[in-house]
Computed example of a mutant assay.
Amino acid sequence: MQARNFDLIAFDWDGTLFDSTRIITRCIQEAVRDVGGTVPSDEAAGYVIGLGLTQALAYAAPDVPPEKYPALGERYRHHYAAHYDDLSLFDGVLPLLASLKARGHLLAVATGKSRRGLDEALGSAELKGVFDGSRTADETAGKPDPRMLHELMEQFDVRPGRVLMVGDTTHDLQMALNAACPSVGVSYGAHEPDAFAVLNPRYVASSVRALRDWLLANG
């Protein structure tokens, strides 16, 4: 078996493993409309994916006063719940994760989702036992603060150079850079890949298949 370059591979969730970018964008827009704010563009709503919910909504709706943030969050969760059954893993994600597990990699999720939201997503039978650890924005610092990765490194006793962060946003790659960890970007999620270059990812994958091929050859 080929020697591993990385002991721990941490994945973002939405837009990286989970095909949810378009629906999250629409839910943010509908939530802002519900509370009377200026509805953000697709680009502005998509940019905040990966951040913690309050941070994301504050950025996407700068004219909504802070006292309306609880209502804004509630409306976002309402719209997201209505679309939950429309969401799924990207094609090829399960075989990708199985291949990495078979090679002995530790797998983790580092996400801007809430713990409740991630646990609901991970509760499916197909994902039982796949991930060795996870961190969410509401139980630690949100991206791009490196605390998620620092905590995972401490949990599994893995040094930064042996951790790879995989994500679809500049928030993910900046978090990796802040934690002194290598990263890989994916261009099929929320952010345009041109923005990744200054964050020095090892690779930018245009599909799950391309990500799998690179990880099996270089991970």
Score class of each variant (00 low, 15 high):
R22Q: 04
P182M: 03
E139W: 06
L97I: 12
G129M: 08
V198P: 00
A82Y: 05
H79V: 04
S187N: 02
K68Y: 02
G133H: 01
L127V: 00
F196C: 04
N5E: 15
L152H: 03
P40V: 06
E120R: 13
L164F: 05
Y47T: 01
T170H: 06
D91V: 04
S114C: 14
G185N: 02
Q155V: 01
P66H: 10
S124V: 09
G167W: 11
A82H: 11
A56P: 01
S88E: 10
A137S: 15
L8Y: 08
F196Y: 04
S20L: 10
D138H: 12
A190C: 05
H171I: 00
V158M: 11
G129S: 06
L97N: 13
G161M: 06
E192T: 00
R115M: 09
H79W: 13
G189P: 09
P182H: 03
H171E: 04
L17K: 12
A205Y: 03
R33H: 14
E192W: 05
V32H: 12
A98E: 15
L177I: 00
P70T: 04
R116S: 09
R147F: 01
Q155C: 07
A98T: 13
H150F: 15
D12L: 07
A176F: 13
D12H: 06
V163K: 03
D168P: 07
L100I: 09
R209G: 08
W214F: 15
R159T: 09
R135W: 11
H171P: 00
A141D: 11
M165C: 05
P160V: 12
I49N: 14
H79L: 05
P182D: 04
G189L: 07
D138R: 13
E74F: 04
C27H: 10
L106A: 10
G52V: 06
G92W: 07
Q174Y: 02
Q155M: 11
T140D: 04
G129L: 06
L152Y: 06
P160T: 07
A61P: 02
Y84C: 00
T16W: 08
D7M: 07
G189A: 07
A60T: 02
R103V: 05
L53D: 02
G36N: 13
T25L: 10
M175F: 13
Q29V: 02
D168R: 12
A61Q: 07
D86M: 01
G15P: 04
R116I: 09
A125Y: 01
D19I: 04
Y59N: 01
G15K: 14
K68R: 15
P146M: 11
T111M: 06
A205N: 03
L87T: 03
A110D: 05
T54D: 09
R115C: 10
E43Q: 15
L89D: 03
F131N: 01
G37R: 11
M148I: 06
D85R: 11
R77E: 08
A180I: 02
D213M: 09
G185C: 08
G219R: 13
D86H: 09
R115E: 06
L216F: 00
M148R: 05
Y76G: 03
D12V: 08
D132C: 00
Y80I: 01
F18Q: 10
Q2E: 14
R33W: 13
R116K: 14
A141W: 14
D172T: 06
P144K: 05
R212N: 01
